[in-house]
Amino acid sequence: MSEILDEAVLQEEDTQKGKFLTFLVGKEEYGIEIKYVTEIIGGIQAITEIPDVPEYVKGIINLRGKIIPVMDVNLRFNKEARDYNDRTCIIVIDIDELSVGLIVDNVAEVISIADADIVPPPDVRSGFHNRYIKGIGKIGSEVKLILDCQRLLSTEELENLDYIN
C-alpha cells in the first residue's frame, strides 16, 4: 500500500495526464484523475461530527493542522452504508482550493488510461443513474468508472440532491 501512496504522491504534473487512482466503493471500482489527489490516508481516524449536514458528510478531520471535511462516497452515491475497517482509506482531493477527504473502502492502484480508451457514461435511459461519473475507462477487459470530481464536490448538486430525495 505504501508504495502506491508514495507513487501517487510523488508524480509530476506533466506526467499525470491519463493517470488515474483506482479505488473500491462497494463492489465497483472507480477511478479519479491523479492530478486532483493530494494525499491518501490509510485508515480512518477520529472524525468530528457536524450537525445539520447531509448524511454523507461525515464531519471534519485534522490533517496535519489543516481541517478538512470528509465525505462517505458510499452514502454520496446513495448506496448502503458500509462499516469502516482497516482497509478503509481517505483520499484527499483538491479542486479550486477546496479540499475534501473521500472515504472509500479500498485503494487499489495507479493506472494509465489513454484518452481514446475513455468513453462517455451510459445514458440514463439505460438505467445508469450515477451523475458523478465523467466517463468509462477501459483497461484490457476491465472497466473503471471515472469520477467527475467537480460534480462530486459541487454544492449545487448537494442542494438538488436533497430536494429530489
Partner: peptide
Amino acid sequence: LPKFIGKIAGISACTL
C-alpha cells in the same frame, strides 16, 4: 469551518 461545509446553526468555527 471548511467552505465545503457551509454555515451551521450554532457553530461559528472549529479548532484543534
